[in-house]
Design a protein around this nucleic acid. Sequence first.
RNA 1: GCCUCAAUAGCUCAGUUGGUUAGAGCACAUGACUGUUAAUCAUGGGGUCCGAGGUUCGAGUCCUCGUUGAGGCGCCA
Length: 458
Amino acid sequence: MKAKTVKELYLDSKELDQKQIYLAGWVRNNRAQKAFGFIDLNDGTCFETLQVVYESETLENFKDIQKIRAGSSIEITGVLVLTPNTKQPFEIKATSVTLIGDSLEDYPIQPKRHTREFLRDNAHLRMRTNLFNAVFRVRSVVSHAIHKFFQDQDFVYVHAPIITTSDAEGAGEMFQVTTLDIEKTKEIDYLKDFFTKKANLSVSGQLQAEAYALAFKNVYTFGPTFRAENSNTKIHASEFWMIEPEISFADLNDDMKLAEDMIKYIIADLFKRCPSEMDFFDKFVEKGLKQKLQKVLNSSFKTITHKEAIDTLQKANEEFENKPKQGEDLATEHEKYLTKYFDGPVFVIDWPKNIKAFYMRLNDDLETVAAMDLLVPKAGELLGGSQREERLDMLEKRIKEFSIDDKDLWWYKDLRKYGGCKHAGFGMGLERMVMYVTGIDNIRDVLPFPRTPRNCEF
RNA sequence: GCCUCAAUAGCUCAGUUGGUUAGAGCACAUGACUGUUAAUCAUGGGGUCCGAGGUUCGAGUCCUCGUUGAGGCGCCA
């Protein structure tokens, strides 16, 4: 008999009524009574569990089945029975239950509430809980939705290099990559290192994506990103996944439109494909989550300039620890106020040129750059992007202003010499998107095995 | 990197002003129970009170240092 999955049973329960079923999975809970008992079985194919009923009359090994502990893997055959008057729409009346892999007495995942911290310490087991099962299925579905969104519009998926010798990306501290024996090397000579120069893990694939955009028109990257900052917050990790689309013959408005369309596409797809998971988050993680996301789907994102943002903050009847000032960066408390004030995602555009990266296009006021940050509650800066400086003379001027060593940027400047055009792009942290749509407020709980300062277990 | 807080049974926690043998619920084991669904009930086993030092007649409790974790800020996606 071909094995069924729990998901298939839920999809076809009416047709399968009274049919013999074979399937395998893991025991979430086992409630044994004198002459019968109930097993909640999850096989990983969907959020729901399947209730298996076993009875002493029909099962020779009834006494053994009663003792099967949570976490054990089992194989069962039985008859599907519709049960419209109970909590679950159907169940399986077992004709055989076989223990495949026992779960020892000290199994950490019990049918009870655990703290997120404890489950983080058990990252190899935590996806067996309702919460993390839902989180990591959603992470997968969001990733797929992102690919669909771009591929359906003929964007080319570019695998940006993970090792780079360019130090000019300017997006943060980098992890060094070397084959030198650092325990034995006293004076470091990079000419003797693997790449004959100092190499690091990439903090962004953007510069390389620009090169591909100027051949394929529209491209995106989607891959791991590494940041070595000693950053201890709920929204930072040392290893995370980033999506970086880059679009040619496009300006900042096109860029913002793309970001907004993408976010709405992801949310709509999630509602369609993960209704059980979204119900669970709405009920147990963030009350009102679904309504919040529904509202995002049905409204246009707000846009304000950096100057207007500071004005709003200065007029606010609120004591900020960091006083908002024109020409200066927004502090976390400012971002939080703005998202609350606008009650939804808000683009902040036209940032002072000195606090943004060298490659961002200078606006006609010569004071601001065509940059945008999309702020959302919980995840903070969900994505950030800009129109790129396509004018070679302006770019070189900006590189000088930032005192950047541009010897590694020759190829990047070439892109302005040979068929350059206006282009734009943004970078979105996948984890921040997953946080936003699930209501989970710690990035360590949306990464399969999170890497943060002092933590590289598993 | 800075600041604040925390660490007691496998898990979640209580533990009074420093005072006898450190408790509860869940989990686990044994038993009871004819429809449970975080089942229920009874009985039982289970402790390096984070580590090292110190104060004291006496430390889970007070002090110092360390480790780990959490929250906030900074940096960023």
